[in-house]
Design a protein around this nucleic acid. Structure first.
Length: 653
RNA sequence: GGCGGGUUAGCUCAGCUGGUUAGAGCGACGGAAUCAUAAUCCGUAGGUCCACGGUUCAAGUCCGUGACCCGCUACCA
């Protein structure tokens, strides 16, 4: 870690994927780490890119009547655009179709082949075309179905080339055991070790062109192309000059962090290290697997329609706020839950109320008292010492937290200092000092609050580059000092502020109004506008005519048919019936306020309509998991039923 | 089934190598203040630290057992 350089990588993303919050998270995390290290004056290299070979690309190309290369060229843009929007500061964007990369891959293949680390053998297996994977007979489900996608597999016998991965099993186990930071978090190392308890087989690294032509040709057999994973992993070294620019390679390798999602753990902790070992290349310092973003408690998936679109979040709330939320909300290595409600809460309390408002009160105060000129402070009293200690603690601890990949904790320490800033304002009450004419003390207070903000903004700059530069400019800073504030220099207590003239600023983070978030659906797929639309949270609210909702809003309510299996009165309540209903095989209990209109036996057996995703509630101590629909007026109440026969559990819409 | 992790205030979580009245953020309630983005500040939350048993002068913090949840892995020799 102390070798004074920092190289961080993201996985290279498959070009045919649509960028989602997972891609965005990994890449923003890498970006934030890269920016921090740059601000700490550590030479930094940040690599991301795209994985462009393989069957899906070829298939998509065929459908679009393009060459695979053209297909890649058109789809790679999705990622490049998103990274631009998210302010990703990668030093290089590698594509596996880059000629240099291909050359490196081929050279590696040839070298391993020459050393008999790659050999040819016959392989028999059940191949699933959509998954591009072989399975052994015992993997299959229900006869010959693919265990991943449940589609039929083909039995194929073919010759292929294999990498002698099994040679390195013992070595790898030992390496992991003796290098505790190699795989992080530690429990992921454990999982890898668990995987390595089974005998490690050799890795098939080729595909016959007859089946798949879109890939890097094997240099020693032009009937085959290289298996995508083998090709893709090599980007981490080919992207920093391996075999093409030894000086560059020496400078950056080994990588400080390979950031990955937990779904690609094995490829990175087993395949990749054994490949490197075979090549005689040094191991990565660390492979870090982060968790997933969930929607509430559920995994995000297209079929569930609960995918968070990063582009939309940025359009609505601003890139910086989005980046802040992702970094602040995800604890080390774990899964985290993304809800718009949580986003709005954190945005309002951390960014708008604590930080933005503090800036606002300091700037307005200074503008009024000294015409905006930041005064010279007098000697510090206890309050000032406490305040500065608070922010200096953040200065000291944040880099530590970074080293431990505890970004959320690091940000929390900064937020603590900001809250201390608000307390300091209350305690010293500069508005009162002004009235009393205690200008000396007032000057100290104005200076110290500005100084606190300056340091906090510097520390937060890697996470929120635009907004923190705005903040620094409001304090009167200009040029590089505002655009690229240096964390490394935060320790020398030079007074850089006195004499600067503050600039008035509109709310740095405009508060998001309370009832907004839940009601507003994420707009559809289409990225609305190009980047510059920074942060106008409430702009979104004007789009929809009052009283109307979108189809998406409607579908947030899951209506389903249900069959009433049991019904009884709730004791001590004259309006309530307790129902046991069947919703497509799932039994639920529901308390309904219909007892004055329906006797239990009247409702029994009916197919009713319920709101299936209503938050459960307790009514007179009885759990009610949903509500039924009914029409009611002064004359009576009628339950909504289905016209004709329908099974229970059917979605209505 | 095996291996690993988790179960702490309404919610999300922090509590390192065991040691004074168990903490933070958010939310809720009460109050103060008015420089500020209806923002801020102060106070309150009386939590069986999952359960039971054990080690210890002392356990949320170590050991054992059980329950529930999650991850990986395998469907048992």
């Amino acid at each position: 870690m102390n070798d004074k350089k920092f190289y961080v990588s993201t996985p290279i993303y498959y070009v045919n994927d649509k960028p989602h919050i997972g891609h965005a998270y990994t890449t923003i995390l890498a970006d934030v780490l890269a920016r921090y290290h740059r601000r700490l004056d550590i030479p930094t290299f940040f690599l991301t890119g795209t994985d462009e070979h393989g069957q899906k690309v070829q298939k998509a190309a065929d459908e679009h009547r393009m060459t695979p290369q053209e297909q890649c060229d058109t789809t790679v843009v999705r990622f490049k655009e998103l990274w631009k929007k998210l302010d990703i500061s990668n030093d290089h964007f590698i594509r596996t179709t880059d000629p240099e990369h291909k050359k490196v891959v081929q050279a590696i293949l040839q070298n391993l082949f020459d050393r008999d680390l790659i050999y040819k053998a016959e392989y028999e297996g059940h191949y699933c075309v959509p998954c591009e994977r072989f399975f052994t007979a015992k993997d299959l489900v229900e006869g010959n179905l693919c265990p991943e996608c449940r589609r039929p597999t083909n039995n194929i016998v073919e010759s292929n080339y294999f990498f002698r991965m099994s040679n390195y099993q013992e070595w790898l186990i030992d390496y992991i055991n003796t290098h505790p930071d190699f795989i992080q978090p530690a429990f992921r190392a454990n999982e890898t070790l668990g995987f390595l308890k089974q005998p490690l087989s050799d890795l098939c690294i080729s595909r016959p062109k007859s089946r798949l032509a879109w890939g890097i040709e094997l240099p020693f057999d032009n009937d085959y192309v290289c298996y995508v994973w083998f090709d893709a992993l090599i980007n981490y070294i080919s992207g920093v000059g391996y075999m093409t620019d030894e000086e560059k390679f020496k400078k950056w390798w080994p990588v400080s962090y390979h950031l990955i999602g937990k779904d690609i753990l094995t490829t990175h902790t087993v395949y990749w290290p054994t490949m490197l070992k075979a090549m005689g290349v040094e191991m990565p310092q660390s492979i870090f697997a982060h968790g997933w973003w969930l929607t509430g408690r559920e995994k995000m998936s297209k079929s569930l329609g609960n995918v968070v679109n990063p582009m939309e979040m940025c359009d609505r709330y601003g890139v910086d706020a989005f980046r802040y939320f992702l970094m602040a909300e995800m604890p080390l290595g774990q899964d985290a839950s993304f809800t718009e409600e949580a986003f709005v809460t954190r945005y309002n309390s951390d960014l708008a109320n604590d930080l933005g408002n503090l800036l606002s009160r300091v700037v307005k105060m200074t503008l009024r008292q000294t015409n905006g000129v930041i005064p010279q402070p007098e000697a510090y009293g206890e309050d000032e010492k406490d305040l500065m200690a608070e922010i200096d603690r953040a200065v000291a601890e944040l880099p530590q937290m970074l080293d431990e990949m505890k970004l959320n904790r690091g940000l929390e320490v900064v937020m603590q200092a900001i809250r201390a800033g608000n307390r300091y304002m209350e305690k010293t009450a500069p508005w009162t000092l002004a009235k009393k004419g205690e200008t000396g003390r007032l000057n100290t207070v104005l200076y110290c609050s500005a100084e606190l903000l300056r340091k906090a903004a510097t520390l937060l700059h890697p996470v929120m580059p635009h907004k923190m530069t705005e903040l620094l400019e409001a304090l009167g800073m200009t040029g590089e000092a505002a655009a690229n504030p240096d964390i490394a220099q935060l320790n020398d207590d030079k007074n850089v502020l006195s004499g600067l003239k503050m600039n008035d600023i509109l709310a740095l983070f405009l508060r998001i109004q309370a009832e907004e978030p839940a009601a507003k659906p994420l707009p559809q797929e289409k990225p609305a506008k190009p980047a510059k639309q920074e942060n106008k949270p409430q702009a979104a609210k004007t789009e929809m005519p009052e009283g109307l909702i979108t189809i998406d809003e409607f579908f947030r309510t899951q209506l389903k048919t249900a069959k009433v299996m049991e019904a009884e009165r709730v004791e001590g309540a004259d309006k309530l019936l307790k129902l046991q209903i069947d919703v497509g095989g799932e039994m639920r209990q529901l308390v309904a306020g219909v007892a004055q209109y329906y006797a239990p036996e009247q409702i029994l057996g009916k197919t009713i309509v319920i709101v299936a995703n209503l938050k459960p509630a307790k009514i007179r101590g009885i759990e009610s998991q949903g509500m039924l629909l009914a029409a009611k007026n002064a004359d009576g109440l009628k339950i909504v039923t289905i016209d004709g026969n329908m099974p229970s559990g059917i979605s209505i819409g």
